[in-house]
Design a protein around this nucleic acid. Structure first.
Length: 237
DNA sequence: GCCACCGGTGGC
DNA sequence: GCCACCGGTGGC
């Protein structure tokens, strides 16, 4: 059935920042596959109907206008159904497609988004964007005004996401790390990008002679994703 | 009290 | 008609 290319999953979510690197224009099979709400005859299967993907900017955008002529699926609709794929997801985030197994809507799919560091769960793109902007979820936003910049990044990769009991706003701790950690006022003047070895999908940013940390690069990606999703008109800051 | 899950609908 | 989104609640 599924046949995505074997190399679909980067070894490390931190590497997934392909916002500007479109890998291969050939296999454009992604995106549409999740577009359905099949109601299967056999209900009653318990769990196990889920698939998880790593959030990254997949090379869905084809800058090739003359590739297909069977309909215009441009993104002119930017109200609701604006995200065919998950390209808007900042790198590192996970998406989970959860299939409903009972009830009148059995068979339909719910998407959940997980923040890489805390594992916080979101039910919609709207919620994710809100979180990226405010650093908190709408519901948990009571009076936790914490501008503490906890700049130590974790490696989102650890498989330690499991034992989390309650995933939500830290009741007493500092606010979550700033989702948008990028100094728009002082961007680096020059960045060199190099691809170290062929196996790696990611390019490595270098400023001067110093490699840029992965976490920093990821912040760039997150900021880029957020801005282009949220404030396309304010790109000129 | 929390969380996961389903129901229902507004917008396309 | 399809689908993303969110309200509400049942179960733990």
């Amino acid at each position: 059935m599924s046949d995505s290319a074997p190399g679909d999953y980067p070894p490390d979510p931190l590497l997934a920042s392909g916002a500007f690197i479109s890998s291969s224009a050939g296999d454009g099979t992604l995106g549409n596959s999740a577009k359905r709400r099949s109601i299967q005859g056999g209900i009653g299967v318990s769990g196990s109907g889920e698939s998880v993907r790593i959030g990254m900017a997949n090379g869905t955008d084809q800058m090739n206008p003359s590739l297909d002529s069977s309909g215009h699926q441009a993104e002119s609709k930017s109200r609701k159904r604006a995200a065919p794929g998950d390209n808007w997801l900042p790198s590192g985030w996970r998406v989970e497609d959860k299939v409903r197994t009972s009830g009148a809507t059995a068979g339909s799919v719910d998407k959940y988004y997980y923040e890489p560091n805390t594992g916080r769960k979101f039910r919609s793109r709207t919620e994710v964007l809100y979180y990226l902007e405010h650093g908190t979820s709408k519901k948990g936003a009571k009076k936790a005004e914490n501008t503490d910049f906890n700049s130590d990044h974790f490696e989102g990769q650890g498989s330690s996401n499991r034992a989390s009991r309650k995933v939500k706003e830290p009741p007493a701790g500092p606010a979550p790390p700033p989702p948008l950690d990028f100094d728009f006022k002082n961007p680096p003047e020059k960045v060199s990008w190099s691809m170290g070895n062929t196996r790696e999908e990611a390019w490595t940013p270098i400023i001067g002679d110093v490699k840029v940390q992965d976490s920093v690069r990821q912040n760039w990606s997150t900021a880029f994703t957020f801005i282009t999703n949220r404030n396309p008109s304010k790109l000129s800051l």
